[in-house]
Design a protein around this nucleic acid. Sequence first.
RNA 1: GGGCGGAUAGCUCAGUUGGGAGAGCGCUGCCCUUACAAGGCAGAGGUCACAGGUUCGAUCCCUGUUCCGCCUACCA
Length: 922
Amino acid sequence: MSTPQLDKIYDPKAVEARWSQIWNERGYFHASPTHPGQPYCIVIPPPNVTGSLHVGHALNHSIQDILIRWRRMQGRNVLWLPGTDHAGIATQNVVEKQLMAEGASRESLGRERFIERVWQWKATSGNTIISQQKQLGESCDWDRLRFTMDEGLSEAVREVFVRLHQDGLLYRGERLINWCPRCLTALSDIEVEHENIKGKLYSIDYPLEQDPTIRLPVATTRPETMFGDTAVAVHPEDPRYNRLIGQRVQLPLTNRTIPIVGDAILVDREFGTGAVKITPAHDFNDFEAGERHGLPRLPIFDRQALLDRPGLKSAGVDQAVIDAVAALPAIKARAKIEQLLKDRALLTKVDDHPMAIGKCYRCKTVVEPYLSPQWFVKIKPLAEPAIQAVEDGRIRIIPEGWTNNYLGWMRDIKDWCISRQIWWGHQIPAWYCRHCNKDLIIEDAAAPASAAQSPRLTILQGATPIVGKAAPSICSGCGGQQFMQDPDVLDTWFSSALWPFSTLGWPEQTPELKTYYPTSTLVTGLDILFFWVARMIMMGLKFMGDVPFRDVYIHALVRDAEGQKMSKSKGNVIDPLHVMEQFGTDALRFTLASMASPGRDIKLAEERIEGYRNFANKIWNAARFAHMHLAPTGELHPPVDHTFPGLWIRSRLNGAIQTVTTELEVYRFDRATSALYQFFWHEYCDWYLELIKPVLQDPLHPHGSATRQTLQDTLEVFLRLLHPFMPFISEEIWQSMPHKGETIVTQPYPVPQAHWHEPTAEDTFRLFEQTVGLIRTGRALLNYPPGHEIPVFVAHEEPAANTMLVTIQENLAHIGRGRISPLPISEWPTSDVLRLVADGITVSLSVERGVDLQKALDRLMKQIAETDKEAQRLDGKLNSADFVSKAPPEVIADHRNRLRALSRDRAMLTNSEQQLRAMLGA
RNA sequence: GGGCGGAUAGCUCAGUUGGGAGAGCGCUGCCCUUACAAGGCAGAGGUCACAGGUUCGAUCCCUGUUCCGCCUACCA
């Protein structure tokens, strides 16, 4: 901007790239524990290393950058710590897809080479999102970039695992878990997305063993699991069936009989047939019911959720049936079985039935409850302090409304399944002595149906793990020296849960850890409140003995303009990079901040971004204007500006500083941006710059230099106020103006100045604005050509306004292009005038030739009608005994005053009406 | 099934100790006024979802209803 006479239009592209680079090169974002100032730290929610910047990131990161830049300017010792997440399943999927394209697979490569391959991929493609973040202007300390599988973070993971194990909070158990048959791994409960579908409820007759003519009707939505049934449950108090408890039924299509048990927990007498099959290996409820009744578990699906031939065989299924259904996926098997049961007249009813199915959050495959040995974290002892921390306010959730959501979930939390049967991730630091567990380690493909792991290696339930940070050297049981590490890796969220302290160096007691932990604010979307936030709180409390952050700010989800969730498959994704290219990064950031209202999802529309692009351009052009009138530099005693415009704009700027700061403190980015926009566009540009133009354009004006000084000072303060929101343009303009310091990034954030506050100037301005408004309205009404100066009569009913009118007179010549007559209303000319009234101000304009009188009259009549309506309303209230006796006195007085003003207005309007009618008649 | 949020101008949304309904975009009219036409000025447009209740007075507080969205959940 050294050549301000150039571009009328702000071109963000070159500017942004340049500053982004300079900021990073000069290390403005670098944090150090030795820096002065109270620490302020945010750890970024690490985006997936596979990711590229989507609009959700853009929102999340913009908010954090606003907070960080604001606090940095406030002089805090700021650290914004960036990083990426190894994203186990997601990353593995990406690389496996590549392999598939090459005709290979992870199995064909083998574990070690596969992992190498993933690291290779990370080295070449894993930093995409980081460079995009820099493009967004994020003021992270990039030197501290971390990755969840860094050496240090992996050390933290092992340390935590071992300590949890020592404290008895880890166990390995054969449980029913959510299994993704495509990813071939366990998922935690929250990694399953539920979807409502139209299912069917089947009623199947199970004949009684003793008397096959008596049949027990069993209701199920999943007939294909029936081969795994090990009992049928009825309600113990159900008169229809309870006498049958203890008897056995023949399981159709098999050679097995299964018992009838009474179970009041599982069975709802009112629902279905009142009899429920129990399939402990394939249903969560049934698993628990099976525990209660000591029932065996018969898995009949394999890892891919196909009907498993050996499983069916050992479940005693008829050979013909096995041949019909083996290796079929559940849905197809269901149709076959439906037919087989129909053939035997055992399928008595099929009803429509809405139901929910679970899908893998990564690949949307229907998950299958699956029996397998997995590692779990005993979560209740960890959840308890995490509930406490939020209840007693050590952690604040903003907006507050989500607190109950958090507490509800935490109070009902289930043990956390942390093992995953994939290769990319932190391999579980547990080893098994080959000798002691020789029957439980299976290293070929002939694993049983419950074998979760790779067919090449399965560690069955019952094996004894030795947990430690490194492989043991000798087995304390048998003295053996051959060990097998657990092949599973940890849930990706396990390492993310440690993020606030692992990234600061834990378990080492680093200066960073001491300075920046607990961190200040966590900014996140609701979608990972449970995945991540809750677990960070639990882990932080457990291992640091303190909360990981003070405030959790939860922002909305970004949707498209139709309110649809953005997704690649829908093709409705707004690409932030494209937006930044088209409208500028500042515009995107400002838009997102302006839409971050609590309690509502964000529907992003391009028009809105365009609007803020225009705002950036407006700022640019105001700066160009200021450049034309820069104050002389190097003056020892810059003149003090006591003019009305100067006093007024400083007072307004002061208000804006106050508002923006207050709103930032309560995370109301929408209101902060709106204050910036409103102030700059509609006060600074629309009024202030217009007010001072005559002064600036007169080289001999006595207030010239004072005005120039104010113009420049207020713009400079505004740029600092704006900087956290629009870092690029604020820096660019700031640099082009007289300034002290290298960069706006580290300049102090504006602070309200008591001596800037000028209530009188603000009152005067309100009157001035009203007056000008009335003149302009009248001018438009009377079709005065622009630039044509007209005589104007102005009066105000308040005596105090008279001194203000003097100020107004001084400024009116330019803005309103009118001159005020000093005459009192009673002495105004009684003919050829149109009088307009508002809030006690009366403005009178003379009518000239060429005016559309009818139009003027129409408008006048409308105003009269509105005035009457309002007067009637007020009058009604003031005549109500209830109102007068019960309403607060100040409200009554206010009503009276308004009514009085209205009646005066009405008189003026009537006068004008008569004038106009007379002229129309003439 | 449980819980939460939303319904205000054509669109997207603000609006707290309850007292005269706002912004941006869009629309209409007039202006290329030497910072900005990505601009300026003026203007049109709203039973604040519906029905009750509390109150002198309700967009706001309470109850119910409808519609939309989200979270959560094992009704087989």
